[in-house]
Design a protein around this nucleic acid. Sequence first.
DNA 1: GTGCTACCGTTATATAGTAACGGACTGCCC
DNA 2: GGGCAGTCCGTTACTATATAACGGTAGCAC
Lengths: 166, 166
Amino acid sequence: MASGQGSAEGMPPVARALDAAEARCLRAGAQLTELRRQVLALVLESEQPLGAYALLDKLKAKRPGAAPPTVYRALDFLLEQGLIHKVERLNAFIGCVEVGHAHGHDHHHAHPHQFLICRECGMTLELSDHAVAHALEEAVARAGFRMSRATVEVEGLCAACAGGAS
Amino acid sequence: MASGQGSAEGMPPVARALDAAEARCLRAGAQLTELRRQVLALVLESEQPLGAYALLDKLKAKRPGAAPPTVYRALDFLLEQGLIHKVERLNAFIGCVEVGHAHGHDHHHAHPHQFLICRECGMTLELSDHAVAHALEEAVARAGFRMSRATVEVEGLCAACAGGAS
DNA sequence: GTGCTACCGTTATATAGTAACGGACTGCCC
DNA sequence: GGGCAGTCCGTTACTATATAACGGTAGCAC
């Protein structure tokens, strides 16, 4: 396997996600190169969404010559493969929680998802709420639109931060 | 009235919207100054969402000294008053369709809304679908979040563009 | 070999957004 | 009237985000 381990048991979450990404790219006929893998690892290691330039800074530790196009090209690839998402409100990128889950069919990319962003602590949570997705599909169809991708992002207070200060 | 006309009948839509905006600001105790009015007019005159710098270019016709802060300050004000929305996916601004509608109570700002963006022709449609808003509220609450603002933007094909090319 | 493609390094530039300072004006209090 | 605070806006400079364009290299088909 990609991480050189025989099984997913006991592996750190990031390594497991990288293996899942590797497998997914293989199936899709896409190449998860070393650069892309490094960028994906950096995104996954971060708890919070990471801006492209923050990513670039981190990347420079391993790849001194890295420049904006280096990260953006990798990010574009990862977005296309559905391995990460972009949080539009933050101009930042975050790992997709669905990668590595078992699926009956390949959803190529762009599964329905929603982000909850805490304006206090910055924590960002990904939901995959079916009811929201369904309601949105209906509304879009009623308007005569054909949907290809949806961005649903909520800014607010997470449970912890809402508890502290009203 | 602000536009110097006695009634809304027969007025061009933009002028009517400007009057509504004026009234709304009055009620809110906010000042719709000449600059802010000009920026709002430019946003309303455009069929499609307008970027801040596109706006700036247009504004320079009337206000040669205009600079980025000129537009951004006006846009911030208009956003706060709920007179325009920002389309995050496009980094662009568009007039709010709800202004001028009759409301039983003042919703200060931020009514629930969704954008449908045609990737072919760029047309952007604002919805105010209650089912979507409701589903989202429920999902957010289940996650223990307190929502303050939501961004819902769908990229796809409008009826016209979907009809032409499958 | 030649030609093609994908990937990436590199430089430069475009686009989006803010910080910070100062001047003009208004309203208010005394 | 003088002083004071608040709002609005002009102006300069700057930060942050993203892309264009060119060139090199490695792999592969023929």
